[in-house]
Simulated assay, not measured.
Amino acid sequence: MSTRTETVAEVAAMIDHTLLKPEATAADVAAVVAEAAELGTYSVCVSPSMLPITVPATLKVAVVCGFPSGKHTSAVKAAEAAESVRNGADEIDMVIDIGAAKAGDFARVHADIAAVRAAAPAPVVLKVIIESAALTDDEIVGVCSAAVDAGADFVKTSTGFHPAGGATVHAVELMHRTVRDAGLAVKASGGVRTLEQARAMIAAGASRLGVSGSRALLAAEDAGAGY
């Protein structure tokens, strides 16, 4: 876990600058890419139908898969991921079947993740969205363990679309404890709107942040002081 206060630039470099609104247009995506480059974020995260997009060499392209419900079949998720990679995606953020997790069917969760991993092999980065606010602690541990075994690179808290809510410090801490020894990372996403929240998520173990309002988050009062 982080024991220091990250600068604004360091926080920016952990952000997947996100645009997943259903009404997003190509012009909106182009504006998000320009803003991400200006702010110095790690990537832009968009819907698969918006690909291909042109980004500067400083930016990665992340694309969601099985979004936002996770109730697509594994074959559909795998096909979607493969198509996104062909269209230029560097990273895939897939949603698990939350119902399978709630039922304790972690073998099914594992198979779902493994199917996407096979369709989008390394060096593509695979992030697994677990919708942590909808799960118990035991369920969070179960799905994170499945993600480890299926070869994912990240576990991610939330889609930002579930009524149960988004990222919490507790969930990030639990996810980090579960996956860190296996070398996986944690992405905190959903409701991260302030620099204080971002730093709290980083301190809890997140090394990536999903943020749609990146400019507002980074334009904190203390930004001029280098904090």
Score class of each variant (00 low, 15 high):
Met201Pro: 03
Pro22Cys: 05
Gly190Lys: 03
Ser47Trp: 00
Val192Glu: 11
Ala118Met: 10
Arg108Gln: 14
Thr25Trp: 05
Thr41His: 06
Leu184Phe: 10
Met201Ala: 04
Glu38Pro: 01
Ile98Phe: 08
Ala36Cys: 10
Ala100Gly: 06
Ala79Pro: 12
Cys65Trp: 01
Ala120Tyr: 03
Asp105His: 13
Glu173Cys: 08
Ser49Pro: 00
Asp153Ala: 12
Val64His: 01
Phe154Trp: 12
Ala223Gly: 00
Ile202Glu: 06
Arg86Pro: 09
Leu217Ser: 04
Ala223Ser: 14
Val85Leu: 11
Ala216Asn: 13
Ala62His: 02
Val63Cys: 15
Val61Ala: 07
Cys45Lys: 01
Ile92Tyr: 00
Leu195His: 13
Pro123Trp: 12
Ser189Asp: 02
Gly66Ser: 08
Glu196Ile: 13
Ala37Tyr: 02
Pro48Arg: 00
Met175Trp: 10
Arg208His: 05
Gly70His: 07
Ser84Cys: 03
Arg108Pro: 00
Val76Arg: 10
Ala204Met: 05
Thr168Lys: 07
Glu83Asp: 15
Ala167Asp: 10
Val32Gln: 11
Val155Cys: 12
Leu195Ile: 15
Gly190Trp: 09
Ile113Met: 01
His176Phe: 15
Thr5Lys: 11
His17Gln: 10
Gly160Glu: 12
Thr136Ile: 04
Thr73Asn: 03
Asp28Val: 04
Thr7Ser: 15
Ser158Asn: 03
Arg199Ser: 11
Ala164Tyr: 06
Gly151Leu: 08
Ala30His: 11
Val179Gln: 02
Thr5Gly: 07
Ser84Trp: 00
Glu221Leu: 12
Gly165Phe: 06
Val141Thr: 13
Ala78Arg: 04
Ala147His: 11
Arg108Asn: 09
Ala62Pro: 05
Asp97His: 14
Ala185Phe: 14
Lys187Gly: 04
Pro68Trp: 04
Gly151Asn: 01
Leu19Thr: 07
Arg199Gln: 15
Leu184His: 02
Ala27Pro: 07
Ala9Lys: 14
Leu126Val: 08
Asp28Gln: 07
Cys45Pro: 02
Ser132Gly: 11
Val8Ala: 13
Ala185Pro: 04
Asp138Cys: 08
Val44Gly: 02
Asp105Phe: 06
Ala114Cys: 08
His110Ala: 13
Ala225Gln: 12
Gly183Lys: 02
Ala114Met: 05
Cys65Lys: 01
Ala225Trp: 14
Ser145Val: 09
His72Arg: 10
Ala115Glu: 02
Val186Phe: 04
Tyr42Gly: 08
Gln197Asp: 14
Lys21Gly: 07
Ala34Arg: 12
Ala122Gly: 08
Asp105Tyr: 04
Arg4Trp: 08
Ala203Asp: 15
Ala164Ser: 14
Gly99Asp: 09
Pro163Asn: 02
Arg193Ile: 06
Asp105Ile: 07
Ala204Leu: 08
Ser69Asp: 14
Ser145His: 05
Ala223Val: 13
Arg215Met: 09
Ala119Arg: 06
Ala115Arg: 01
Gly66Leu: 04
Gly224Ala: 13
Arg215Gln: 09
Ala34Tyr: 04
Val116His: 02
Arg199Trp: 06
Asp153Phe: 03
Glu10Thr: 03
Pro163Asp: 02
Ile92Phe: 00
Lys187His: 10
